[in-house]
Nucleic acid binder design. Structure first.
Length: 224
DNA sequence: GCGACAG
DNA sequence: ATCTTGTCGC
């Protein structure tokens, strides 16, 4: 049976109206901040989602989980959340510690219909989320200065939908956008606060390390 | 019709 | 995303 994109599109438009783009609670001090990422294996037939729990403000890894779920949809630009959310939901339920804030690898509202994977999952899990993408899906932005820390707005159809941040020198910028239950200002601020000298903020960096079993994660495992 | 296009 | 080694540069 073929994929009914028109149906998924209608769902996105419906879900998008439920996304909260302001802070759930002003000036909150999170205890745990999480990161989520999804990879694929077995010729792309299985989605492998990883989530990590870090303490704030130390940003030390205290828990990680990995879930494998059969893929039900191919990658179609603009419909990524339907492909990755099932796996993200699976790892989410495995966590013994639920975070106060979750960073997701991908767009939040910086999406043609305002429902990137960070927003879609935040809505489903009812948790504040921030979308941190490594490349652009839609929108335009002015040239970015080479200095780390420089930021410019991401616009789409006359609206400000996110921020383009040079998190590290000589690295391509990050595309930050509201996921759910957070303001655009806070989304950018928390991303900056979670930066520790690498291109990716710690939550997303660790989630990627776990999902891909990178050396940094292997070393952490050995020390446990 | 042509180019763009998260992971 | 994934397939994959070395290599140039800070």
């Amino acid at each position: 049976m073929s994929i009914d994109l028109a149906e998924l599109k209608a769902l996105q438009q419906q879900y998008a109206t439920k996304v909260i783009q302001y802070d759930r609670n002003e000036a909150f001090s999170p205890r745990y901040i999480a990161g989520g990422d999804v990879g694929f294996e077995a010729q792309g037939t299985v989605a492998r989602a990883a989530m990590v729990i870090l303490t704030w403000p130390e940003l030390e890894l205290v828990e990680y989980q990995v879930a494998r779920v059969p893929v039900t949809l191919p990658y179609i630009p603009g419909y990524l959340s339907f492909r990755e959310c099932p796996a993200l939901e699976a790892v989410w339920q495995m966590l013994t510690i639920k975070p106060d804030l979750l960073f997701i690898d991908g767009q939040g509202v910086a999406h043609p219909r305002g429902l990137g994977v960070a927003s879609h999952f935040g809505l489903f899990a009812d948790v504040p989320t921030i979308g941190v993408a490594k490349s652009r899906l839609c929108g335009e932005y002015d040239a970015l200065s080479p200095e780390p820390g420089s930021v410019v707005g991401l616009r789409y159809q006359g609206q400000l939908i996110g921020s383009v941040l040079r998190s590290k020198v000589r690295c391509n910028p990050l595309f930050i956008s509201v996921g759910h239950q957070i303001s655009a200002t806070s989304a950018l601020a928390w991303t900056q606060r979670c930066l520790r000298g690498y291109r990716l903020p710690e939550p997303t960096r660790w989630a990627d390390a776990v999902a891909s079993n990178r050396p940094s994660f292997q070393r952490w495992l050995a020390r446990q």
